[in-house]
Nucleic acid binder design. Structure first.
Lengths: 220, 220
DNA sequence: ACAGCCGCGTTGCATTTGCAACGCGGCTGT
DNA sequence: ACAGCCGCGTTGCAAATGCAACGCGGCTGT
C-alpha cells in the first residue's frame, strides 16, 4: 500500500508494520477504487465508514434548500472525510463524489465505539482518531474566521496570513480559482479582481496557485 | 453541583452518582467562579483544561491581524469550550472572556492522552469526549454553510431552515441581534433591514428572538 | 493541425450591503 | 421620577460585489 501517503495521515503515521496491520484490522480497512464522477455514499443514510483518500481526489457536496449544491470540502491524498458523521452514525446530509479516478481506504469506527476494553495499540489509535477530530475543528475554525470577514480583501488577507504563518512567505495553495472562491465564500470573478488589485498594489505576487506575500501586509 | 446543567452535557449525561464522581476525578474537575469581564485564559499559551459552563456565559474571541476582535463562539450553561485546543495542546489563538458572572467547571484531558489502559468508565468517557468533538464539527459545518452564502437573505433562509429542521416552525434563538449578525457574518443594521423585509413579505414573523417561519420559505 | 474545452483575467452594470447616524422604547439604579 | 444605557429598527449614501458576458492562452484528443 502507498506508505508515503499513509504516513501523512495522523491516524497511521509512525506505526510499525505490525502495528499498521493491527490498525487496519481494528478499523476493518477496505480499499476500493472509483471512477471519476462516481458517488461514494448515499444521502440520508449513515456512513458506515469514513474514508482516507489514497489517490485521486473527492469532493464533499451539500444540497441547498433551493437545489443549488455547494462544496463543503475537497479531499486530497492522505486526507480523510466523514469521520464525524461516521462516528456519530448520523444520516449523511452530504454526498461525496470522486472528481478524478480515486482510491479510497474505508475505515469503520464500530470498534472504537463498542469495545469494552482496548489494547494499548487500540488506545493509541483512539487517541489518533480523537486528534483527527480536534484538528478538523481547528481547520474549520480557520475557515470560519475567513468566511466571517465581510470584504473579499479581508478574506484574502486572513487566508494568506494563515498560510504564511505555517509555510512562510511563499507557498502554493491546493485550489484552483473556482475552489478558492468557494472556500472563501465569494465569486470567482470578484476574487480575480481583488487578487489583481493586491498584486498591482505590490501587496502580494502570484502566478497560478503559487503565492508570495510581501512584508507589511495589512488590512486596507 | 448543578445536576440539571450537567445532564445537558454529552460528557456527563446519564451517569450514576458514583460514575460522575469517578468522571470528575478522571478529568481533574475544578470549579471556579469569574466576574463579568474576567479573562479565563492567556493568549499564546496552551489551555491546560477545557471548560464547561455551569452558570453565566462566556465568549470566545480572536484577534484580527489589524487589531479588530471577532467573536468565535458564545458558550452558555451546559456547553463547553476549548476541547479541541486543550486536547491538541496547542497555544491558544483565542481569548475567553466571561460576559456575565460565570461559574466554570475546568476539565483536563491529560489522562485521556497518556493513560496506558482505561477502565470501562474511562473508556465511556473517552467515547463521550470524542462524541463532543464530532458534534462540534457538525455544528461548525452548519455555520460554514450559512457563512458561505453571499446574500443576507440566503444566510437567513439557511439559518432558519436549520432551526426549523430541529425545532419546527416556531423557535427562539440564543442570540440578540448583534450576536446574530456576528454569527451570520454580517452587519447588525443590514440584518435588521433584511429581517424587516422578510417579515413584510410574509415569509417569517418574529418578535425579539422568537421566530416563526411560514410554509413555502424559499430562496428569493 | 485544429476544434473544443477549461481555467483565468477583465469589465460594465445593477444591486446589495457595510457604515454611520438617529430615534425610540424599555429597563435599571439612585 | 428621571437620567442614562442598551437593544433594536430605520435610513441615506458610497463602495463593494455578485453576475453575466467576453476574450485569451494552454491543453487534449482525434
Amino acid at each position: 500500500m502507498e506508505n508515503e501517503i499513509l504516513k501523512k495521515c495522523t491516524l497511521f503515521s509512525g506505526l510499525t508494520m505490525a502495528e499498521f496491520v493491527g490498525a487496519l484490522a481494528f478499523f476493518n480497512g477496505i480499499r476500493k477504487s472509483y471512477q471519476k464522477g462516481a458517488f461514494l455514499n448515499r444521502i440520508g443514510v449513515p456512513l458506515e465508514s469514513f474514508g482516507l483518500v489514497l489517490s485521486g481526489a473527492v469532493h464533499v457536496y451539500m444540497d441547498d434548500i433551493d437545489g443549488h449544491h455547494m462544496i463543503m470540502a475537497t479531499v486530497e491524498p492522505g486526507e480523510t472525510f466523514g469521520e464525524s458523521l461516521c462516528y456519530l452514525g448520523k444520516d449523511a446530509p452530504v454526498y461525496i463524489c470522486a472528481v478524478t479516478d480515486a482510491e479510497i481506504l474505508w475505515l469503520r469506527t464500530d470498534q472504537l465505539k463498542s469495545a469494552a476494553v482496548l489494547s494499548p495499540l487500540e488506545l493509541t489509535l483512539f487517541n489518533r482518531f480523537a486528534t483527527m477530530l480536534a484538528q478538523r475543528s481547528l481547520a474549520m475554525n480557520d475557515r470560519i474566521q475567513i468566511l466571517s470577514k465581510t470584504s473579499i480583501r479581508a478574506k484574502l488577507i486572513t487566508f494568506f496570513s494563515q498560510y504564511a504563518q505555517r509555510f512562510g512567505n511563499a507557498f502554493q495553495i491546493p485550489f484552483d480559482r473556482n475552489s478558492m472562491a468557494t472556500y472563501l465564500g465569494t465569486d470567482r470573478s470578484a476574487l480575480s479582481r481583488e487578487l489583481s488589485k493586491l498584486k498591482q498594489e505590490g501587496i502580494i505576487d502570484y502566478k497560478k496557485n503559487r503565492f508570495r506575500v510581501h512584508k507589511g501586509m495589512e488590512m486596507g
